[in-house]
Amino acid sequence: MILRHTFTPHNNTRLSNLCGPMDEHLRTVETGLQVSVAHRHEQFKIDGHKKNAERALEVLQALYELADRPIRDETVQLMLAGDSASLSEDEDGTQRLHTRRADLKARTPNQSVYLENIATHDITFGIGPAGTGKTYLAVACAVDALERSAVQRIVLTRPAVEAGERLGFLPGDLTQKVDPYLRPLYDALYDLMGFDRVVKAFERNQLEIAPLAFMRGRTLNNAFVILDEAQNTTPEQMKMFLTRIGFGARCVVTGDISQIDLPKEATSGLIDAERVLKRVKGIAFTRFTSADVVRHPLVARIVDAYDAQRKTSSAVSTTRSR
């Protein structure tokens, strides 16, 4: 299918920003949607499957509205990741969060469901591949709740498991030893609150970051609690963590079951929890896919390639076992 469109009113600055340096933004749209985009001045021609061509035109029209100033590569990639409703800034009713990032909102339908689940359930699970915003949006919701005084503190935790490596002895005191495992959570906090505010929040005990092993025996009241990298918990650890939740608390558990770093014979606490708790009222599960990836477009393709290989390997193993 070939779509033709003329951008009016004609504006050379907007057209230049829309296309990007050396037509870089157009090439990104072509790669992301498997279409061909050609243009002569304000007249554009899009060639591809009907659905993809219409989607490409939709993205280009949205970009043209933003093109009064240069458009960042990230903006183009985020628009390609979202559905048509997510292209508008405020009219779609998407929940916005009170953080330092004024533009922070859901970029895909599953992210919208995820934010809604966090707002309406005491415990929410976010399960899916890397780059889908599971952890970042959960931390953003926690910061938002703290800003609104809906909770008194934020507690962030991760299991201290090496990602397929043996790091050996780590020098330093306890804080320095566990810091590498928790660094992604610090990065999200700095981005959403700013370095100075994060430091002050730690001083006031409004922020706490700790390894999962430190949760045993505690009761967390009036807190927003996030367990990240939950695929690396055991069923016993997951049960221990979930039973820490106290009155006035909200909990989010995130993980990617395709990146489990536990020993092969061990069962992932995240997989076990989804099986055991899927019918428990008050608990919500949000499943992300490669379509929700909001990093570089290659990340989604990498996720799909590994998923396809895993399914093929599983099918071969099943056939051999018969």
Rank of each mutant, 00 (worst) to 15 (best):
M1W: 07
N11V: 04
T13A: 14
L15A: 07
C19G: 01
R27M: 07
E30M: 13
L33S: 04
R40A: 13
R40H: 14
H41I: 06
H41Y: 05
K45I: 11
I46T: 01
K51I: 09
E54W: 01
E54D: 09
R55T: 02
L60V: 10
Q61Y: 00
L63R: 04
L63G: 05
R69L: 04
R72M: 09
D73T: 14
D73M: 10
E74D: 11
V76Y: 09
L78K: 12
L78H: 12
L80K: 02
S84N: 07
S86A: 15
L87F: 12
S88K: 07
E89C: 09
D92H: 11
L97H: 07
R100P: 00
A102C: 04
A102R: 14
D103M: 05
L104G: 01
T108M: 08
Y114H: 04
L115F: 01
N117A: 13
H121A: 00
F125Y: 12
G126W: 00
I127V: 15
P129Y: 08
G131Q: 01
A138Q: 02
A138H: 01
A145D: 03
L146M: 09
E147F: 00
S149N: 14
V151W: 00
R153G: 01
T157P: 06
A160W: 10
V161C: 06
E162M: 02
R166W: 01
G172H: 08
K177H: 03
D179H: 15
P180W: 04
R183Q: 14
L189P: 05
D191K: 07
V198N: 03
A201G: 04
F202P: 03
R204S: 05
R204W: 11
L207F: 12
L207P: 06
I209V: 15
I209K: 05
L212W: 10
A213P: 12
F214Y: 15
F214S: 10
M215V: 07
M215L: 14
G217C: 13
T219Y: 10
L220N: 02
I226Q: 04
I226D: 02
L227F: 12
E229P: 06
E229Q: 08
A230P: 07
N232S: 11
T233H: 06
M238S: 10
L242S: 02
T243Y: 10
G246W: 05
R250P: 01
D256I: 06
Q259H: 10
L262S: 09
K264E: 14
A266V: 11
S268D: 00
S268M: 04
I271W: 00
A273R: 05
V276R: 11
L277A: 03
L277H: 03
G282P: 12
I283M: 08
A291K: 11
V293N: 09
H296L: 06
H296Y: 09
V299C: 08
V299D: 08
V303L: 07
D304G: 02
D307T: 05
D307M: 06
A308H: 12
K311M: 10
S313E: 15
A315L: 14
V316Y: 13
R320Q: 13
